[in-house]
Design a protein around this nucleic acid. Sequence first.
DNA 1: CTGAAAGCGCTAACAG
DNA 2: CTGTTAGCGCTTTCAG
Lengths: 331, 331
Amino acid sequence: MASIKDVAKQANVSTATVSHVINGTRYVADSTKDKVFAAMDVLDYRPNMVARSLRSRKSNTIGLLVPLVAQDSSNFFFMSIAHGIEQVLRENGYNLVLSNSNEDSETEQDQIKVFNTQFIDGLIIAPVNGKEHSYQDQLTGDYPVVFIDRRPNQVEGDVILVNNRQGTRDGVQKLVEKGHERIGFISGTLGITTSDERLAGYQEGLKQHEIPTKDDYIKEGPATFQCGYDLAKELHEAGVTALFVANNVMTMGAIAYLQAYDVQIPEEMAIIGYDDYDWMKIVSPPLSVVRQPAYDLGRVAVEQLLKRIEGSEEEANEILLDSELILRGSC
Amino acid sequence: MASIKDVAKQANVSTATVSHVINGTRYVADSTKDKVFAAMDVLDYRPNMVARSLRSRKSNTIGLLVPLVAQDSSNFFFMSIAHGIEQVLRENGYNLVLSNSNEDSETEQDQIKVFNTQFIDGLIIAPVNGKEHSYQDQLTGDYPVVFIDRRPNQVEGDVILVNNRQGTRDGVQKLVEKGHERIGFISGTLGITTSDERLAGYQEGLKQHEIPTKDDYIKEGPATFQCGYDLAKELHEAGVTALFVANNVMTMGAIAYLQAYDVQIPEEMAIIGYDDYDWMKIVSPPLSVVRQPAYDLGRVAVEQLLKRIEGSEEEANEILLDSELILRGSC
DNA sequence: CTGAAAGCGCTAACAG
DNA sequence: CTGTTAGCGCTTTCAG
């Protein structure tokens, strides 16, 4: 691999000149530039990013840490976010290093450590659920951090979230408008911010129509297919006429139950699910859902991060992105 | 950030000693070791990986380049592969840098260039479909490369593939065993290796039962929901009694058609799809599918790569992993 | 058993 | 308009 020294020699200039030609960091006569470019061409020179990073303490790389779980459809959501991030990054000449916390707190800490020893210019984290370690202590690298999707406790910093409350409220209100009063709510384990906010949205939606909330109509459990199935059964037997399911895995389970027991949708049971995937069009009837703006979430997050990298000192931002209610046949 | 120099000073030893303590590269007296560890502790020292890479030309990082498309369910497949890769890498103290070619040839080339200027110790590529640039010319970094999922033309090198032919053949044979003779085949655009091999498997499956293949029963098109829908319609009208759909997106489309036209599954039309996702359990009846061993593919690929990194000179390997036929209610 | 010192490839003062 | 050179943090040879 040719180095900057080789290029300098070949072009009969100093390494400083070559460096400045590459980076456009000071004026270089056109004739000199030409010589340098020619030399770079001949030698097939590619700057060594590692050396550059070491010297300039800047890598033009940002890290993304997401909690993927194998075979979990939430992956779509995070991949969509990653896609938005990548897009913006590419426009700005940055690269992305993607890392996976496996929805596991320890792994997350390990990965943060890895990032701390690498040179990254910034980090975007979708925190793992549950037991929280102290991000403040971990994030000792001197790069800015933006949190997405879930609000970490006791951290001041930029946070970009989906407005879970609004999304759920809109869905529930639609159900009420359709004449439902006994509306069941199925949620993944409560205690994590997204679930809690969706529950709050559910309660808010009912409240605005002055429908009292009934604890029996609120069911929570691990976000699995089976649990969605079981809770749908419980709610059906409890006599609800509509279901709001706060995540897509449990939505699948709920639908499986309704189909297994021949419960007509939407006549006997209306249902609104969460997240929009292709398969929701092929269940019959097609499913109405709350769609989260994942791609935009990614874009907004990097934009905020890039502002910080460029030195913005404005105080910590919390940005909420609205969800969209997509009506199909299931309610 | 404390550097190795700071640690050396604090511990009253040379930087060489600190380095050797960290890396275990030569004998150091226990008493000295203790001093060094204490110093590292006090200063919260973390080695700078960039400097290490620059000096030792080794980054303990490997790259993964996959063709993700937003909202495409093939993402699952690649994420599953990534998961397998990560797992093995972590066991071996390596890190993963994931990059996305967006199923676009130019982006792929750009990303390879990025990898060439970074220090990676090895690269795993799932080549984009269609127009192929010459990998030989691009891959000028001096790291080993392993290709996965799709066989690149004119490249000698390690390739880890799913046995598409066997997977499809097994499915088709099952259909024949169930008494079907008019079996339709729906495929994504032909000309890419995976599609072609699946077609070959289809033909092979029929041949083994001495059923003549009929061109009218073989349909191809872009791997979209709509196209799956349309081609299922054509085949249904052509009088086939069973459908083998060679990818999951078109499988969704095909099912949507069958449902829309009230074609009973499997009585009027049996169907086997590709790839195993949760939603396949909730369509009625649950879908029989060919499951690809994605996770294992990832593991096998890194294992091969790590062997190369450690200097293995054995000749290029081509490994085929068998798919698994999962029978549910749709055939 | 340990230290001194060169140097990986690059950037950026400083000096003309 | 361009060159000289120190040094980023680390590994590793050579020397003791």
